[in-house]
Design a protein around this nucleic acid. Structure first.
Lengths: 199, 199
DNA sequence: CGCGACGTTGATTTGCCTCAACGATTGTGG
DNA sequence: CCACAATCGTTGAGGCAAATCAACGTCGCG
């Protein structure tokens, strides 16, 4: 079994939680995905690019972020193994993106091109459904994050992040977490100090 | 043509932007929706309820919000005519909701029950696709809001809200907008004053 | 080895909240 | 139909949360 087959195994495992593909469907779908190895700090999307792929992370970690006028970076999303990333706005309309997707760790991904996704939406009801479910799950967690952003102070948002994504918290530098929470690294440092000095 | 037919006309118009239903499909789908008139301040969902419906707003305005331990309310989403509202987390798992959905204006809605949605997902590829597209669009705008929340101060978020939802800004009391932006009504008032005293 | 990313600390400033108070609507029950 | 309560927008004083700026030590990596 080569690397791509191993990656595809993980990809199809993902769908076991929603609407699993049978072996005939897997044969049709497998060739549509391309496996790529991505180095740390390598980009798979930059502003101005049209986002042409839906990306399944087999191994590693990515961040989706925006840079503002001052050059400050704001992390919109982290994606680790067994999850999906893309700039949906750019992917959906095939218009130039405003965002970056960068590998935070050396990574392995499976990518499917936009036109193949569209083909599969037409050809396969199950494919369509599975991608509905992917977006629904992401919508639910994003809505919870929005509620936290408008209702909780930074320390509580940080504690919720630790509780919700303990594996991410261990792998990411605090500066990346601060950017995701919408605070400065200095202030996150102060929060962490307050938390330890208090049981 | 009675009221429900008029409402259904608007419902099917909505899908013209994605994957329109033909007349045969409309005949199958129409009976699955129930029309309801909702009074101002009436709830269609409260914490503890299982969210059993996907709701299309034909006319009027709703807010989806959470209340925290102090009883403060935090607006997660507004929905006006020709758009959808539900608590997706509660709807998909059929678990008790933590949220409220309240009518801000006298409203008319069309509701489809959870089990009918599931039936239609199985029966109709197009139905499935249309609901994928609904969630995708909502995901994109929610992600933009998240970016603003973590990267912009309150005044810029308010200006973006005015630019993105001018119709909502005219219809909503400022106190509701403040809650959506994650600031106090007093501070929004100060922001508005600063904006007028400065061209 | 040396440079750049990272985490931390402290001093100062700014953004935003809290609380209290006030008119102007709005709406509702008697 | 009016009276009174509730909601709404606003203002101001004071306080806390979080940003800014500068500085420093550590570490991993080229």
């Amino acid at each position: 079994m080569d690397n791509k087959d191993s990656s595809l195994g993980k990809l199809f495992d993902y769908f076991k939680n929603s609407s699993p593909f049978n072996s005939r469907e897997r044969e049709d779908i497998a060739p549509l995905f391309t496996e790529r190895k991505i180095k740390r700090r390598q980009y798979i999307l930059q502003p101005g690019d049209v986002c042409r792929h839906f990306t399944y992370v087999v191994e590693g970690c990515f961040r989706l972020y925006a840079a503002d006028q001052d050059g400050k970076e704001h992390n919109i999303q982290f994606t680790i193994e067994n999850d999906w990333t893309t700039d949906l706005a750019s992917f959906y309309d095939q218009t130039p993106s405003l965002l970056y997707i960068e590998a935070i760790e050396p990574s392995v991904i499976l990518q499917i091109k936009h036109d193949k996704v569209i083909d599969m939406y037409v050809a396969s009801h199950k494919f369509d459904r599975n991608f509905r479910i992917i977006v629904e799950r992401k919508y639910i967690s994003l809505q919870n994050r929005t509620l936290q952003n408008i209702s909780q102070p930074a320390e509580e948002r940080y504690q919720a992040f630790l509780a919700d994504y303990p594996q991410l918290a261990m792998r990411l530098p605090n500066t990346q977490i601060a950017s995701y929470l919408g605070i400065t690294p200095e202030f996150l440092s102060k929060i962490r100090k307050d938390m330890t000095s208090r049981p």
